[in-house]
Amino acid sequence: MKVTRVMIVAVGGQGNLLAAKVLGEAALLAGIEVRMSEIHGMAQRGGVVESAIVFGGARSSLIADGEADILAGFEPLETLRAVAKCNKNTVVITSTAPLPPFAAAVGKVAYPDFSSVQKQILNVAGSLTAFDAAELAREAGNVMAVNMVILGAMAATRRLPVSEEHIRETIRLKTRQNFVETNLKAFELGLSQKS
């Protein structure tokens, strides 16, 4: 089966690892080979969290520069920081809601404006779907559901080897029971994003 490489980047606390886990569990449910790796050093201290999900027969669970099929970022600066993972066929999804690092939040360094982020991403990648995932998560009923919104947008690309239904089923089975409804709603809102 064709190998599909998905990279997810976020700021610690945004729920990146749960998004990756849902994709992994959905693959297990669908009987698709999957390997994942994560770097979450000091996530609770506001650092960057990266997850790589590799579907298909590859043995490596790492994604090298230029080799992601999908790059999904929960925060525009972090999406841009990971753009080296992209090539001309990479589909990029990003939330436009910024979470400025401290130095930028207090005005010591400039946070790049979105048009520049967009331009730099499109210099490297094939396409970009950008929207305010935090707003959609709020609309779904929980601002913490950004991860589910982005999952929906990933499914909308039709580049994932797992089906929407497998993802929905995984959300039902593997996310916290009292959040399932909100999570599913957030997923659907993400799914309706045009890519």
Binding site: G46, G47, A103, Q120
Partner: peptide, 16 residues
Amino acid sequence: ARPGQAGLPPRPPTLC
């Protein structure tokens, strides 16, 4: 040079 790296504000881990 890795694209998308130069001049970006870093996000170091910090004390909470």
